[in-house]
């Protein structure tokens, strides 16, 4: 197989993986610390994508649009936590699933009411529209490179925040042993609100950045939610490090599945069958990965609780 093509797909996989990580980081922290399953996390991602696309179109400033999207989504998340999610922390997972599924239904209708039912075009910022010549034979879209850079930066920032700051210490304490943290006088409620807002900001960032290279439409949150959940389960619920590793794994496996499996199948199977199975295997790849990980390590790769 053409090494240039492989390298290009590798970059695409990393990019998708990093975006998944932005989503999964918030999800895994909320799950790990508050023991709360928030299906509406995908709706925050959608909110970020819509606001960014519209503000970018109106103002012409992409950076400004991303910042506004993050700010607006954090505001929405603040209200959401205050009104609903806060009251779900003490409930069982099923109640959380039901209530946050309700939030999804409301969010989808709200987006429809504000921005209409048809998909919105999110334009790539003009300065980043062209390709960069990475290697003599490998032009790569500049925008995707920026995506990689931002994703890595955020990952490093999150690593520092969680492992080397006081806030991070409280977060980790909460994730590994909530009762003990409460006992030690950590104001858990505040930590919760902070983590929820942080997760929302990361989800909005991911949405805003993914907008130009995916479809900004109603239902995009539900579509991305499942891979994000797969990531946190593979990584070990509550572990940011696990989410990072798992996100890259899932990103690579998914992209590789789509890019390499169909040609691979075509070389060993009859064309008609290969054309059928290619997309199926590609779609299934990440779920097989998850099932395999769970069979070997039932609590994920990096269990947050000992």
């Amino acid at each position: 197989m053409d090494p240039i093509f492989v390298f290009e797909q590798l970059l695409n996989g990393l990019g998708f993986g990093l975006m998944l990580f932005l989503l999964a980081a918030g999800l895994t922290l909320v799950f790990g610390i508050m023991d709360t399953m928030n299906l509406a996390h995908g709706s925050l991602y959608m909110a970020g994508a819509y606001v960014a696309a519209r503000v970018h179109e109106a103002s012409g400033s992409f950076v400004g649009a991303v910042l506004v999207a993050v700010a607006a989504t954090v505001l929405v998340a603040f209200v959401l936590e205050l009104l609903i999610v806060k009251r779900l922390y003490a409930r069982d997972h099923l109640a959380q699933v039901i209530a946050t599924f309700g939030v999804i239904l409301i969010a989808d209708d709200a987006v429809k009411a504000i921005w209409g039912p048809s998909p919105v075009m999110a334009t790539t910022p003009a300065a980043l529209a062209g390709p960069v010549q990475l290697l003599p034979e490998l032009p790569y879209p500049a925008y995707r490179l920026v995506l990689l850079a931002v994703g890595l930066l955020v990952a490093v920032g999150l690593y520092v925040l969680v492992n080397h700051t006081r806030v991070g210490m409280l977060v980790r304490a909460g994730a590994s042993n909530r009762k003990m943290a409460e006992f030690m006088g950590v104001r858990v409620g505040r930590v919760f609100s902070f983590v929820f807002a942080l997760g929302a900001a990361l989800a909005a960032l991911a949405g805003a950045l993914m907008g130009p290279i995916s479809a900004v439409q109603i239902g995009m949150g539900e579509a991305i939610l499942i891979p994000a959940l797969v990531v946190i389960v593979i990584g070990g619920i509550g572990s940011v490090r696990g989410a990072f590793v798992a996100a890259l794994l899932v990103g690579l496996v998914d992209t590789a599945g789509r890019a390499f499996l169909p040609p691979l199948l075509r070389s060993v199977l009859p064309p008609a069958l290969a054309a059928d199975l290619g997309p199926a295997f590609a779609g299934i790849a990440m779920y097989v990965l998850m099932a395999a990980v769970l069979i070997l390590k039932p609590a994920g790769l990096f269990p947050a609780r000992a």
Binding site: I98, A99, G102, V103, I106, D109, A110
Partner: peptide, 9 residues
């Protein structure tokens, strides 16, 4: 959808 969502909550 939203009234149903509200009902769930």
């Amino acid at each position: 959808h939203w009234p149903l969502g509200l009902m769930l909550i």
